[in-house]
Computed example of a mutant assay.
Amino acid sequence: MEVHCEGCAGCCMDWRALLEDGENEGAIDSVGTASERRHRPFDDGEGDGRPPIDDDANFVALARDEVRGFLEAGMAAALTPRFWRARDESEGVEIDGRSVAAVAGRPVFFVGLRKPPKPVAPFDREEPAWLPTCVFLDPMTLQCRIHDGERFPDECGAYPAHNLALEQETECERVEAAFGGERLLETEVDADLDGLLLGSQALGAKLFAHPRPEDLEGIVERTANGTLTAADRAECLAVAAASSPGTLAISEYHYEWGKERALEAASDETATDHRDSSTDSDAGDDRSDDAPDSERDRDESWVGPAIREWHRRRAAADGTVPDPDVATEVEDDRGAPGTPGWDALE
């Protein structure tokens, strides 16, 4: 699979806002329709799929073992759930005034990567814009910070092969339609693709079923409002980590482990965030006691504080957009892995 990614990263951000200025009107209908399709993993081909409760246009679903890996690495803050509206009352469970898609009376959800607002300039734009952008995307190089690491999601590595195998439009093609250029350079894919989980194969492996719908009261509403808390996410991540592929079974051991890891990470990140925002007088002359125990701890702790800092900066921007190199302060200085730049890949 050959794609031209330099200066793009369209699959790593929600760039629909760039079309709202009235330019590229011919691409808006195509982009909007395709966006709706990729929102709906249960679509039966008749156009009556189940829309998601959130508004993420490029949600990357993680497998159970990947969720466990992020929890083990102390990166729970990078993850978020996705629920869907039920197609009709017979298949839904009522939560927070919404009929949520369910299997056997259990609300189902994906787990994917969060997209805080970042200043980015994709598609050869001269000026950056605030766009919801994958937590792991470097705004300066538009490269993934974990691309060569063990946490890099299989779904990201396979993209856009799964879309092509399912005869669905790719993000590469949508970018081409909206902004020109050539992004999708090859369309042939293997007939037998690893990781393409559909139907019952996805249950417990990528599509998770919550065994206690009442525990999701408030969480579904906050999902719709974009105001999920660390505790909300921890509940869903714990269920995902405890799921069993092909079944509705939940491992209580892994549920407790996942919940503890997620909440522990949130607590550690809050402490790190407090240290980052302390003044010299607050911290005293010697900050050695506040330093991470190891370089590994530093790598783990950057995600949550960086997400919160991006949200703070976006809220205080007052219509201005900083240069993407502000990511050095927000992410790199907190321990985010670097990216090689495109010259290094030539």
Results as ranks from 00 to 15, higher is better:
residue 106 R to A: 12
residue 48 D to I: 03
residue 100 V to Y: 02
residue 104 A to F: 10
residue 71 L to R: 03
residue 98 R to C: 11
residue 92 G to T: 04
residue 80 T to G: 09
residue 87 R to W: 09
residue 44 D to I: 08
residue 50 R to I: 00
residue 64 R to I: 08
residue 76 A to R: 02
residue 53 I to N: 04
residue 103 V to Y: 10
residue 50 R to A: 15
residue 127 E to W: 00
residue 113 L to A: 02
residue 75 M to L: 12
residue 29 D to V: 11
residue 121 A to P: 01
residue 62 L to T: 03
residue 53 I to R: 02
residue 124 D to C: 08
residue 101 A to Y: 08
residue 41 P to Q: 05
residue 60 V to P: 00
residue 77 A to H: 01
residue 36 E to D: 13
residue 68 R to C: 15
residue 87 R to T: 04
residue 117 P to E: 02
residue 41 P to N: 06
residue 75 M to H: 13
residue 128 P to C: 12
residue 80 T to I: 14
residue 52 P to N: 11
residue 105 G to Y: 10
residue 42 F to S: 03
residue 52 P to Y: 00
residue 66 E to V: 03
residue 74 G to V: 05
residue 57 A to F: 02
residue 66 E to G: 02
residue 112 G to H: 02
residue 97 G to D: 13
residue 67 V to H: 04
residue 105 G to C: 11
residue 94 E to M: 15
residue 88 D to Y: 08
residue 129 A to T: 01
residue 98 R to T: 03
residue 79 L to V: 06
residue 35 S to G: 15
residue 106 R to W: 08
residue 111 V to G: 09
residue 64 R to P: 04
residue 91 E to C: 11
residue 66 E to D: 11
residue 118 K to V: 05
residue 97 G to C: 12
residue 80 T to V: 15
residue 52 P to I: 00
residue 86 A to M: 04
residue 102 A to T: 02
residue 116 P to Q: 05
residue 48 D to M: 11
residue 40 R to I: 05
residue 36 E to M: 11
residue 111 V to W: 10
residue 86 A to Q: 05
residue 128 P to F: 10
residue 73 A to K: 04
residue 57 A to M: 05
residue 69 G to K: 10
residue 30 S to K: 14
residue 40 R to T: 14
residue 32 G to Q: 11
residue 56 D to W: 07
residue 42 F to V: 00
residue 95 I to R: 03
residue 113 L to S: 03
residue 42 F to M: 10
residue 34 A to D: 09
residue 76 A to C: 09
residue 129 A to E: 08
residue 72 E to T: 12
residue 39 H to S: 14
residue 80 T to P: 07
residue 94 E to Y: 08
residue 81 P to A: 07
residue 55 D to I: 09
residue 112 G to T: 01
residue 62 L to C: 06
residue 97 G to I: 01
residue 118 K to H: 07
residue 59 F to T: 04
residue 100 V to R: 04
residue 98 R to S: 12
residue 60 V to Y: 10
residue 46 E to N: 14
residue 77 A to Y: 02
residue 119 P to N: 08
